[in-house]
Design a protein around this nucleic acid. Structure first.
Lengths: 121, 121
DNA sequence: GCCTTACATAGATAAGTTTCGATATATGCC
DNA sequence: GGCATATATCGAAACTTATCTATGTAAGGC
């Protein structure tokens, strides 16, 4: 890439270094990605997701609380953020609620990272 | 998984549904992941990353600003968040600053997603 | 040296996040 | 029905984030 202006025809309007860029992700799409990544934007939630992924697909809240120095409402909040971000699903099972990884969402996020990592040089 | 208590020896101390879970990610490690995901936790930044990935590895700020209805300082702030999260690098080139994807970080994030997506059923 | 352009920084404000203690809900056991 | 346990919700405090306007900095062209 050169940093010289490439679309000389349009010089009076605005400088453009690289006029070929297009937004490939729409507003709604990028908002959904952002919501999912927001769920992963906290170290506790990253660790919670790691625990859930080890639980044979399912673990209950008390299994999570043991590992952190946080109160039960705080863990409950983090689980809700993960749920709202689409990263896990939760299902009542009597007194407990079991949580499992939403593999489809994880695969979707991997797809986005691969898209932006596919840098042409 | 059964929700019946599995470590009956330890019943008086605390209920444990799934006693085999271990935190595989340390505090420092999960904080670094969280910082990188935080950089992706905003729809504008997801779109900026998409643009940068199309720029042949390098584009300048003016190429980004054109696509959004935001002021220059706001775009500058978002680029800094992406830089601090390790997702892009930025290099002065005369009057411009070029930005490029940090492929190593993207690969690392893909690795974490694969780890937690590798759910045993 | 001076002007223009690209980018960064500072300071303000409005909105969102994290965490807590207190309380509500709902399930299962006696 | 009454109690214990697991989880959710509420409301508040402290902190962080997104955005703006105004201003600073630094490079290149004349």
């Amino acid at each position: 890439m050169s940093l010289v202006m490439t679309n000389t025809q349009d010089q009076s309007e605005s400088y453009v270094c690289n006029p070929n860029l297009q937004l490939r992700l729409g507003t709604v799409e990028s908002e959904q990605f952002a919501l999912a990544f927001k769920a992963l934007s906290n170290p506790i939630r990253v660790q919670i997701l790691d625990l859930i992924s080890q639980g044979g697909g399912q673990i209950c809240g008390c299994d999570i609380e043991r590992h952190f120095d946080l109160t039960q409402p705080t863990i409950s909040h983090h689980l809700k953020v993960l749920r709202d971000g689409g990263l896990i699903t939760s299902e009542p099972r009597g007194v407990w609620v079991t949580h499992r990884i939403n593999m489809g969402m994880l695969t979707t996020l991997q797809g986005l990272l691969m898209l932006v990592n596919n840098t042409k040089s």
